[in-house]
Design a protein around this nucleic acid. Sequence first.
DNA 1: GAGAGCATGTAAAGTGTTACATGATTCT
DNA 2: AGAATCATGTAACACTTTACATGCTCTC
Lengths: 204, 204
Amino acid sequence: VTSTLGYALLGVLSRWPLTGYEITQHMKAPIGYQWTAQHSQIYPELARLTKAGLLTYEKFAGRGSPDNKRYSLTDAGRVALPDWADSPLAPEMPRSEMLLRVRSLWLTSPERAIAFVEAQRQRCLDRLDQIVIGRAEFAPDDLVSWDHPEFFAWATLQHRFTVTTAVLAWRDWLLDQLHAQQRGERGGMLISNHPEVHVRAPPP
Amino acid sequence: VTSTLGYALLGVLSRWPLTGYEITQHMKAPIGYQWTAQHSQIYPELARLTKAGLLTYEKFAGRGSPDNKRYSLTDAGRVALPDWADSPLAPEMPRSEMLLRVRSLWLTSPERAIAFVEAQRQRCLDRLDQIVIGRAEFAPDDLVSWDHPEFFAWATLQHRFTVTTAVLAWRDWLLDQLHAQQRGERGGMLISNHPEVHVRAPPP
DNA sequence: GAGAGCATGTAAAGTGTTACATGATTCT
DNA sequence: AGAATCATGTAACACTTTACATGCTCTC
């Protein structure tokens, strides 16, 4: 019925009613959340979903303006969401600019390659910190049982943790390889096609 | 200088000169490749890069038409590519429709949730098969040493393998949780907001 | 009263997908 | 002769980001 963004909005609103602004904030730092959008995309989509009968809103006078709208699912929306959730999903083919860049690192010098991967490694560590913080918000351990509505939200955080840990391990492996090479352990030679052509001398 | 797609094209062409058609085929089943694009995006971008002086082409009369163009990097392109490759990279925030759907699975019945995750699990296994096939193409083991230009291409395949394995493990964990619940081990109750409201009876 | 944050919208530009369109060669 | 594949392009549409635009409220 709608675009993926539409279902993403239904997804957040299925938990608590929110304003467009609150959704925007929520999607800015999506620790454990799986979609992003700017408010310029969110507001029109909320209007579309309302017109399609999947959402309603109640106006209220809060701070900001007297015309704040707090959206929540209609019955139709509460049917459409789970129907979409387990419908056949086309294989995803995520793009990764990071891996695209790694493929071209052989054209740089070993120093530059190592610096780049090191920076990415640090990013992994930062992300893991964020995930741990996010997990702490599911405070009462007994609520984090599978049959709680929030179980699946928690499960997506687990997913992030698992994947990020795996990526970190990969980056450590890659750095090991690069450092070993830099120490000349394989005696290889990396020719940079850069203006200052850099040819590594064989180890002494 | 260019969009990410532009650098992706420079990246493939930095290995061997190719025609637009060949790049299109290459990007269709990107096992170990990290970007996709349709030919309708590729042809204009190749023209743009050529006009920008990063690519050249030589015409040749092969099958298909007498005006086939085989593109390769210019010196400027061979400088621009590594400069982009290790330049600061904004944090990536990949979207995952699959995880978005998982977050809404609590609105379905346990049966539907399990079937969905099971299907995704199978997809993981298929992908792992593809990765193993892709890795086999790097046949001579001694070529797969870090200082070979193809080392980084191989490393990206390793990345896919690592991540896919981690995702598979997560899905197995999730299925365990769901099955345990279905057997009533936690005695929980999952209320579907679906037309046929499904309330699980507590275990006997 | 000035600035930060709350709150909502529209416009324009860029990126990506699907569909339209054409023509040659190779295989059956 | 017809279908599949090679090969190249354009057009229309959908999605996303960035920028423009406005106005209120709360805090310092």
